Computed example of a mutant assay.
Amino acid sequence: MSSSLAPTPMDASSKIYVAGARGLVGSAVVRALQAQGHHNLVLPTSQDLDLRSQAAVETFFAQEQPEYVFLAAARVGGIQANNIYRAEFLYDNLMMAANVIHSAHRHGVKKLLFLGSSCIYPKLCPQPMKEDYLLTGFLEPTNEPYAIAKIAGLKLCENYRRQYGANFISAMPTNLYGPNDNFHLENAHVLPALMRKFHEAKLQNQPTVTVWGTGTPLREFLYVDDLANALVFLMNTYNDMEFINVGTGQEVSIQELAKTIQAVVGYEGELVFDTTKPDGTPRKLLDVSRLGAAGWQAQIDLKTGIEKTYAWFLNHADSFRR
């Protein structure tokens, strides 16, 4: 199935569009690009450019003519947000992917990297999850709309390559965390939500902190600046049709995660697990052997990443997204 194209690495003056530049992933990609000397970046906000509008996206590409595109824009959230806003998660993410990928093709973008999610894999997927396991079983019901939109995006990239020879690649990261994350107590992912819970419990001297679920599910977590470095690496070196997993290859139980965050925050109360709340997928670990063979591996361990994230959280505690 492999269809490799000639490598087209970016240079310092290449015009690079980062879609979603203010989000968790997009802001990290911008940091990574700037650290490597890239200065010709196009970074419209969602207020400047509604990626759900085909006309607006087409006008933007016609005017700006970017050479490289990192498609990191998405509507995202945790189990609860995914399950409540099902229509918006499907529609918004479908439209963003379709509009940006199609306009990138129409305007001759040299290379596009589409960012997906590990939730594209079946709920009861064999572990660790290889790229070949896509579409081999039913999706996790709570985030099915988001997963379908991400599958559509990677299939768009694959088929624009098949039909037109476009150098569009896709990367599927594991659970992410870091600076600019969403720390909303109900709509955030598990790591930032727990961090805020522990922080507020510490400030208020609360005797217990409640964690959703049993604490037994196993998860993999990747610090977002590690991901950004991987994405820049892939943009410069990876030119195959097959999408590629991006993760650490290591997993931790939610209970262990909670205890690590608790230690970093310095909360001394007790943990209580609310077993009436959903656990989600029992285990989610990516097989990252394809990424390793390409020449990249994660550098930041979980505790160090949590420490860096908590330092950022403390500096932005008055202004983070609620």
Score class of each variant (00 low, 15 high):
S118F: 06
W296A: 08
A147Q: 00
F138N: 13
L5E: 07
F273P: 01
T281E: 12
G215K: 08
S118P: 03
I261Y: 00
T276K: 10
A56C: 03
E256F: 08
P128F: 04
L156N: 06
V209G: 08
M1I: 14
E144T: 14
F221W: 11
G23R: 04
G153C: 08
A87Y: 04
A201C: 14
A97I: 10
T248S: 10
F273T: 06
K284N: 14
L124Q: 11
A87P: 00
E64T: 15
V76C: 00
V224C: 04
C119T: 15
L43H: 03
V76F: 04
N315S: 15
E307T: 07
V76H: 02
S27G: 12
A263P: 00
R31H: 11
V57S: 01
V42L: 13
L191E: 02
A98K: 09
L154A: 09
L203M: 15
N180F: 04
A149S: 13
Y160V: 12
G23C: 10
P282W: 01
P278Q: 09
N159F: 10
P9Q: 12
T59E: 06
S170R: 04
Q47S: 11
Q206H: 14
N175Y: 06
A56M: 07
G280K: 07
N239I: 13
D301P: 03
P217W: 04
T208N: 12
D240F: 05
F273H: 04
S13C: 09
T260K: 15
G249E: 02
D48K: 10
G20V: 03
Y164P: 00
N167M: 10
L291F: 03
F221Q: 03
L94M: 13
K150M: 05
I151Y: 00
W212Q: 13
L154P: 00
H316L: 10
M241W: 09
Q206P: 00
P207M: 09
P278T: 07
Q54Y: 06
G266W: 02
K15F: 04
F198L: 14
R196K: 15
A81N: 05
D92Y: 03
S170E: 03
T174R: 08
V42Y: 02
I79W: 01
G295L: 07
T8N: 11
G23K: 01
D11K: 12
L185Q: 14
N143V: 05
L115C: 13
Y177R: 04
N182S: 13
K202Y: 12
Y310W: 05
I120G: 02
L291I: 14
L286A: 08
F320L: 14
A19T: 05
N99F: 01
Y238N: 07
M129R: 12
T214V: 12
F183D: 02
A228C: 07
V272H: 15
E144S: 14
P9E: 07
D132F: 05
L139Y: 01
V211L: 12
T248R: 07
L286C: 08
A74L: 06
